[in-house]
């Protein structure tokens, strides 16, 4: 994910590919704010704007910029400033080293979320509760039958039986 080509700050979330005469490709990568300025969107407020959020956050003074600048991952050598400039992290451990500033950033970027919900690796063995999966499959089966999609209904029925007999 690159920066917006117009303001060079915010993350581009709006991607246009123009296939010009004789198929020379012109690509435009804009953040929502700049896309809106160019009349490519409505005038409403941008939804998600990571770099703007980051700037706001770093200069906003909740934690001092100096303290953040001192953060460095001992495993990969990535500093917080480098992360802020590049937008990508250096290694999984960075999520712990930068946990505090990241948590706030993630909250802004992911609509207030702070914790993962959903799948987890098999080794942790928590996510695959067969009852949830069965409930989901039964709901889909109902939908397939209502929609008269019998081929799909049959395959769903097979999956349900497979899980029940396991």
């Amino acid at each position: 994910m690159g920066p917006c080509e117009k303001c060079k700050k915010a993350q581009a979330t709006f991607h246009l590919t123009n296939l010009e005469q004789h198929s020379i490709k012109e690509e435009r990568h804009l953040c929502e704010r700049c896309a809106a300025e160019e009349g490519l969107l409505g005038s409403e407020k941008p939804v998600l704007d990571l770099s703007h959020l980051m700037e706001q956050f770093v200069s906003g003074g909740k934690a001092s910029a100096a303290a953040l600048a001192g953060l460095v991952c001992e495993e990969c050598g990535m500093t917080y400033i480098e992360f802020r400039n590049q937008g990508v992290l250096g290694c999984p451990h960075d999520y712990d080293v930068f946990a505090e500033p990241l948590a706030k950033l993630l909250e802004s970027a992911h609509d207030g979320a702070t914790h993962h919900v959903g799948k987890s690796p098999r080794s942790l063995g928590q996510s695959r509760k067969p009852t949830d999966e069965l409930r989901r499959l039964r709901r889909l089966l109902d939908e397939a039958v209502t929609g008269e999609d019998y081929e799909r209904a049959a395959s769903l029925r097979d999956r349900i039986r497979e899980i029940e007999s396991a």
Binding site: L105, L106, A109, A113, H115, K119
Partner: peptide, 13 residues
């Protein structure tokens, strides 16, 4: 806490 870790935090979880 953060789920599947990704290079860019916009994909994490």
């Amino acid at each position: 806490q953060f789920g599947y870790l990704t290079a860019c935090p916009t994909n994490v979880g």
